[in-house]
Structures are given as structure tokens and as C-alpha cells.
Design a protein around this nucleic acid. Structure first.
Length: 496
RNA sequence: GCCGCGUUCGUCUAGGGGUCCAGGACACCGCCCUCUCACGGCGGCAACACGGGUUCGAAUCCCGUACGCGGUACCA
């Protein structure tokens, strides 16, 4: 399939509302916009949609910026870095929206309405289907139903008013969605959307259309929850005489228990919802990005591991699916593991460093890198080096109970301390020699190597699982090994 | 209720009239490798929502039903 022709230059935007911290679904939307922009050599714009003053959250914008930056999705234009379409916060563009709305009133595409939310609520009563549209507006208090002298008096009296879009019920609105194909809405199902609220702020619908036009946005890529309001936006473009951008509505990310992935449902399932929480619990940004890219999109072949640049090369909107997708933590963990494995040891070491620091585990960078190299194949998260594998950095505080039960025999203490003696003088102190010493010892005592290997592992790491024993010993070094072996021989009680 | 969108293994998906008794990945289960655990390799389990059309032939096209999801605010 050939990609749909795309007009250049592409300009897309990610337009979150600072009503909370960045949501993982929001990050995916940002990612698809970013990939699309990069793929076609376009610009990726960040616009803050802060028109709802009642839900404004102080540090939300900073969080959005921080999370995008963490994920490597830096906008080309936005409130923090400016750009040709400044300002990028809708609250700072307020005057423009009112002007535009007034123009719509003048051209007959919009009108003043004086009905309060309470009055409308009362009108709706038990019938939730009551709407504010062509069928009811004639009986309500607005500049279409009232005589001119009357509504003008109201307007100047200080009475609260809003501006509403005048929707023609006989019109059918049709648009091409890049992901869903032709979508059609009948005008009589669209109500007279409020454009300017009584506090003078525009609603999302107005601000979004005005800004997308003013900012030269060519493609609107957003979540499917916006699909039902798109006809209102198309009507607005039409009323303004503007050419609408191309539309692409992304499938929603669903909770494994059904429904939109909400804070509450996700928390219950152990799925972080805020992007910053992924960072906090130790996911690598490239893994999250890779996983999110695949939540609704695929490259059309069997490749799965991508860095952002290769995603850019492979991305296209016509390979985005249209059905909702469930979030799967197992798969995310797998991506994390794969990315960790693919990383140079030095990088893995760098990723582990903050976790080691936080756990008070101090170590030479070169040693951390060597540990990372040895452990990379069995890490799900970089932070595990400071968790279940912390014995690389400090003596084991305890020995796995199961290990003692299964591996520690009557002769273990004696064998382990004999091995301590054997390796104390072992030179060179490398995996090969350490293995040779162990096998010699086993043979001279007439026991299988396993009789020695398992207790030694337990003594040195406190655990019964881990990387190859001899590589592990070599890395830990003579001092630590000998000391830990002797401590264990002394302190682990013989069975029985 | 009304409007819209959707529906292929448990999950993410490939597939867009014959090459599909449906392919890949995660998860799960077995076997192999092996000092353990991983990694890796091999194998297994497991899906075209249902009903009507159209057609020589349908997972693929059309209609309907069911189900899911979204929307239905002076929230975005």
C-alpha cells in the first residue's frame, strides 16, 4: 500500500489541557504527532489548551514538558521555546477568539444566548435528550428568538451571555478521517455549541479551530474521543471560510478491565497512568515509546524493536488501526527488557546509577558497567541492579531460605571454606582459573561440581539464581569472594 | 435514549475476494541448552462476534443483529 499523499510542509500539534499530569494516552498522541511530523519533515507544535480556568493545575504544564523531554519528543514550537505562532498558551490568545466569534455573529453563523446553565438544566429535567439546537432555540432567550431591541438591551444590561454556533439542521457534515475513512453526521444531531463562555473564555471547540488555522496546522491527530465533536469543528471552518486540516482520530487506549484507561481503573490493575510514574517505577523512555508506538500501529512486517529514529522511518498513518487497544504491562516489560539488552553496557550502567545512588550503593563507574554487562540479559529493569542484584555492591544481608534448604548440605561449610582457601591464592583471578580450582577441589573430595557450585553461589550472592558463577566470582573479586565464603561457612547452619 | 466509531488467538496485531483448515509478537505450557535463573533454540495451546446476502469462491464486499467503546457540558 502506498502512503497517502501528504502535503508539505506538515505542521501538527499536540494540544494537551493542563488539568492534570501527562497521561500515558496523551504521550501516545504526542508520539504519533511527533513521528508524523518527523516522517514528513514537518513541525511538531505544543499548544497548551488552558481555557478552563476552573480545572487548571499549576504544575501540569511543567510536567507535560518534562515528560515529553524525558520521552525524547521535544516540540519544535511551544510555550517554553516560542515560535512563529506565539503565544502557545490559549489563555494568552483570548482576545483573538472573541474577535473571531463576533465575526461569526456578524455573518449570521453564531448568536448570543442568555440562558443560564441552571435554566437549561431545569429545561432538560428528566429528559436528558433535550438539546439546544434549531428545534428548541426558537423558544429560548437568544438573539435569534428575541427581538433585536430586547436582546441588545440584555447584552448591555450586564446579563451573562454566551455565543453559540448556529447549526443548520438540514446540513449533513461529512469529512474524511485518515484512519476511519468517510464519517458522516446529520446536522440535526449537532447542537448549537457554546463558542464563548460567559466568563469570556472560548470553549475548546472555538479555540482549537481558530488556533489550528492560525498556526497553519495541516493534520489534526488526536484521540477518538474527539470524533463526535469534529462535525462542529468542520462547521466552524466552513463558517470562517477556512480550509480544514486533515483529520486522524486515534483508537483509544483501553483498560484490560474494559473502558477507557482511567486513573482509577488503571491504578487498581497496577498500571501507571501518569507518564512520570513510568519513570518513577523504572521504565526506560525508549521502551515506553516503542511500546506506545505499537499500541495501535504496526510497521507491516515482523520487526518490533525500534528506536525513535527508526519509528520515524517506518511510521505512517495508514497503518494505524481503528479499534480500541488494551494496555498490556507484560508486553511493556518485555520491551523494557529488550531495550536494556540492546543498550551498550556503559549506557545501562548510566541508567542504573541513579537507582544505586538512591539505595546508597557506592561503586566505581567501571565496576557498575562490568556488572551491567554481566547482567544485561536477565534484567527487566535497570533498577533491579540496586534491588534484587544488589549483592554486587554489598555483602548479602541474608541467604535465601529456599537456597539453604535445597543447596546447603552437611559438608557445604567445609567445602566452601576449602574453596575459599583455594581461591585465595588463585592467580589470575579469572573465571577460567576459578572454575578449574573448583573442579579440582570437587574431584579431590570425590563430589560432583554441583555440590560446590550451589553453596558457593549462595554464600557469595545470598541467592540461588544469577549469572554464570565463575564470571560472577571473577567480577566480585578475590577479597569479597573469600570473605563472603568464610562468612557463610561460619554462619549458615548445617541441615538437620 | 440519541449520535458516532469499532469487532481476527487471553492481549497487541498481519491479512483487504482464491496463495489462510489464518501468519508474527507478548503471556502461558512442554522440550533442548545448562552449575542455577535468565537468554537463545524447537514445539504446543489458542482467533476471523452472529445471521443474511453478493460471488464459482468471503476473515476479506454489502445489509442487519449483538456486543464493546466514545460522545451527548458555558470540560478538554
Amino acid at each position: 500500500m502506498t502512503p497517502a499523499p501528504v502535503e508539505t510542509p506538515v505542521r501538527v500539534r499536540f494540544a494537551p489541557s493542563p488539568t492534570g499530569y501527562l497521561h500515558v494516552g496523551g504521550l501516545r498522541t504526542a508520539l504519533y504527532n511527533y513521528l508524523f511530523a518527523r516522517r514528513y519533515g514537518g513541525r511538531f507544535v505544543l499548544r497548551i489548551e488552558d481555557t478552563d480556568r476552573t480545572r487548571f493545575v499549576e504544575d501540569a504544564e511543567a510536567d507535560i514538558l518534562e515528560c515529553l523531554s524525558w520521552a525524547g519528543l521535544l516540540p519544535d514550537e511551544g510555550p517554553d521555546r516560542g515560535g512563529p505562532c506565539s503565544p502557545y498558551r490559549q489563555s494568552e490568545r483570548q482576545a483573538m477568539y472573541l474577535d473571531r466569534a463576533l465575526a461569526l455573529v456578524a455573518s449570521g453563523h453564531a448568536y448570543y444566548a442568555f440562558d443560564t446553565p441552571e435554566a437549561l438544566e431545569a429545561l432538560r429535567g428528566d429528559d436528558a435528550a433535550t438539546r439546544y439546537d434549531a428545534s428548541t432555540r426558537g423558544g429560548l432567550r437568544n438573539s435569534l428568538a428575541l427581538p433585536e431591541t430586547e436582546w441588545k438591551a440584555l447584552l448591555h444590561s450586564g446579563e451573562p451571555w454566551v455565543i453559540r454556533l448556529r447549526v443548520d439542521p438540514s446540513k449533513t457534515v461529512t469529512f474524511e478521517d485518515l484512519i476511519r475513512g468517510t464519517v458522516t453526521f446529520s446536522g440535526d444531531t449537532i447542537d448549537d455549541q457554546v463558542l464563548v463562555k460567559s466568563d469570556g473564555m472560548p470553549t475548546y471547540h472555538l479555540a482549537n479551530v481558530v488556533d489550528d488555522h492560525e498556526m497553519g496546522i495541516t493534520h489534526v491527530i488526536r484521540g477518538e474521543e474527539w470524533l463526535p465533536s469534529t462535525p462542529k469543528h468542520m462547521l466552524l471552518y466552513d463558517a470562517f471560510g477556512w480550509r480544514p486540516p486533515r483529520m486522524a482520530h486515534l483508537p483509544l487506549i483501553m483498560s484490560p478491565s474494559g473502558g477507557k484507561l482511567s486513573k482509577r481503573s488503571a491504578d487498581r490493575l497496577g498500571i501507571p497512568v501518569m507518564v512520570k510514574d513510568y519513570r518513577k517505577v523504572g521504565y526506560e523512555p525508549e521502551a515506553l515509546v516503542n511500546y506506545l508506538a505499537f499500541l495501535g500501529w504496526n510497521p507491516g512486517d515482523d520487526r518490533e524493536l525500534f528506536d525513535t529514529d527508526s519509528l520515524v522511518q517506518a511510521f505512517s498513518l495508514d497503518r494505524v488501526g481503528s479499534s480500541g487497544v488494551q494496555f498490556d504491562m507484560d508486553k511493556l516489560a518485555w520491551f523494557n527488557q529488550q531495550h536494556l539488552k540492546a543498550m551498550p553496557a556503559s549506557e545501562l550502567g548510566r541508567r542504573a546509577r541513579p537507582w544505586l545512588d538512591a539505595s546508597g550503593l557506592e561503586s566505581e563507574p567501571s565496576y557498575v558497567v562490568a556488572v551491567a554487562d554481566l547482567m544485561r540479559e536477565r534484567l527487566l529493569h535497570a533498577k533491579d541492579l540496586a534491588g534484587e542484584w544488589r549483592f554486587f555492591f554489598e555483602d548479602p544481608a541474608e541467604y535465601e531460605r529456599e537456597g539453604i534448604e535445597k543447596r546447603w548440605k552437611e559438608d557445604s561449610a567445609e567445602l566452601v571454606s576449602a574453596y575459599a582457601d583455594a581461591i585465595e591464592a588463585c592467580d589470575p583471578f579469572d573465571a577460567e582459573s576459578l572454575e578449574a580450582r573448583l573442579r579440582e577441589l570437587a574431584e579431590s573430595r570425590g563430589v560432583g561440581a554441583g555440590r560446590l557450585i550451589h553453596p558457593v553461589r549462595l554464600a557469595v550472592s545470598g541467592r540461588i539464581v544469577g549469572p554464570g558463577l565463575f564470571e560472577m566470582l571473577a567480577l566480585l573479586g578475590r577479597q569479597r569472594c573469600v570473605a563472603r565464603l568464610r562468612t557463610a561457612a561460619r554462619s549458615i547452619p548445617a541441615p538437620g
